[in-house]
Amino acid sequence: MAEWIDACAKDDIDAEDVMRFDHGGKTYAIYRSPDGEFFATDGLCTHEKIHLAGGLVMDDIIECPKHNGRFNYKTGVAKGAPVCVNLATYPVRVQGDRVLIEI
């Protein structure tokens, strides 16, 4: 049963950046796009299970800190080798100054 979980404050994440959020034994990545929108994906790269929150956000793309794995964090789509498996994404809602994700 999906539920909305309070993940962080809006101000916890800079524009064009990402942070890690752990909940219920799983790890997620929460993104703030350059124009201030929030997004959420699974927290681990589909290539070698590295935390994407240590990676670099440029525009719509998160690049895994370990290798060259790149994903569009808004859609989860893998952007080419070495990653070939897409990331799961999760709905996000902003309530006041809080960011909620539905998991």
């Binding site: 590295i50 935390h51 240590g54 990676g55 690049e63 800190p65």
Partner: peptide, 11 residues
């Protein structure tokens, strides 16, 4: 650790 250096190297 990768958490410390990964993003910086990419920049």
């Amino acid at each position: 650790t990768i958490e410390r250096i990964g993003k910086e190297i990419k920049l």
